[in-house]
Nucleic acid binder design. Structure first.
Lengths: 205, 205
DNA sequence: CAGAAAAGTTGACATAGTGTCAATATTTAG
DNA sequence: CTAAATATTGACACTATGTCAACTTTTCTG
């Protein structure tokens, strides 16, 4: 049974301070340099700690980044967990457009850290796992929404909700990275409109 | 004006031999170790050349891999360049399912090298660029196909072909990486069916 | 065909970063 | 005040990269 105890212990307090200094420094260095170019030496220098200290508090660069990602993750989760109980097809379409838009806007508002994270996903196994967590949570939730629509006679049956949800998330995820890198040509709303339209109505209907 | 000259020159011949030995060795090492774990030392050892030699022929590990990707790329291009001139909506749907299936099967048949390439994309800028080339070529071609369908009254208008094509490719690309990593749960044909169904008919039609 | 020039090959070296650990400093407890 | 517990530190060993001056092989030329 794990328990979060409030520690007034001065030693733990100092340790906690150091940990926070390191996290703060890491955030700055990551934003300025990106994941690959950022080094432990840069981080400890800015945090004003010794080299080894970083390895006492974190297992390495990945670990440092993953802790920093928690904030961004909660924002993601709040989008995924939006209630979805439409009574009509029109309402369903509206909700989906809303969710799509919120998802893409996130890319814009959290651009800096997501850029670093996107870079890390390619390199670090633990960053990859963390992202997979976010992704699976999203996909599960969307799959639930699809099942709901199918059960209420709003959406066509005969397609597996989990597979549709995965396809949905994948196209959104890639557009997210595009926006994070500022590679996108079209305005954000146009992208959201297109994604939602294809997902709900398809190209040939 | 560039020209491919046939060289009978013994020096160039030796050089070419070395280059090929390096490429062959690199292919083997990459497949066995993956991109990150593979080292130049391993490669030159297997190619039986000196360390510096690798850097005479290639600018680094990325460059070596990119040359090896050419084969895989041509296979991809042949799928993208399949003719698409359907006369009816049914024919269009059939062609799309075919293309989707071919794309996903590629992931299976070229799994080994694609796995390495997928790893490299996260690390190496040049691998990233090479993949972007493949992607853009695909997207352009699909956008053309969509425009064709729109112009012939088969597909709905009011959506930008380029944006739809991008969404299409993105969901396919991610499923491709999933298959490459053998992470996929559903059988390949089920995935293809779902992707094609959503793309053509949407979820709510 | 000798020997100079050109082209190709090589491994030792400088550089850069990681992660570890024995020594050191600080805090708490008796 | 001293010993034990905890936290911090930087020097060190290690791994890999990319460069370059020296060396080898091939071609050219008188």
């Amino acid at each position: 049974m794990e328990e979060t105890k409030i520690v007034t212990d001065g030693r733990h307090l100092r340790s906690l301070q150091t940990r926070l200094k390191l996290l703060e420094a890491a955030k700055e260095v990551f934003r300025e340099e990106g994941f690959h170019k950022a080094t432990i030496s840069q981080i400890i220098k800015r945090a004003k700690t010794g080299y080894g200290t970083a390895y006492v508090h974190f297992t390495g660069k990945d670990d440092l980044l993953i802790v920093l990602m928690e904030d961004v993750m909660t924002a993601f989760y709040s989008i995924a967990e939006q209630p979805f109980t439409p009574a009509s097809r029109a309402e369903a379409e509206q909700l989906i457009l809303q969710q799509t838009t919120a998802f893409l806007r996130m890319a814009e508002s959290e651009r800096k850290m997501l850029r670093v994270f996107g870079e890390a996903i390619g390199v670090s196994v633990s960053a990859q796992q963390k992202w997979a967590e976010i992704r699976e949570r999203f996909i599960n939730r969307i799959a639930q929404d699809i099942a709901y629509s199918q059960q209420h006679g709003l959406a066509r049956t005969g397609l597996m909700p989990e597979l549709v949800a995965r396809g949905w998330f994948y196209s959104h995820e890639m557009y997210l990275w595009e926006i994070v890198r500022s590679d996108h040509q079209a305005p954000l709303d146009e992208i959201a409109k297109t994604l939602a339209a294809i997902y709900t109505g398809g190209l040939y209907s």
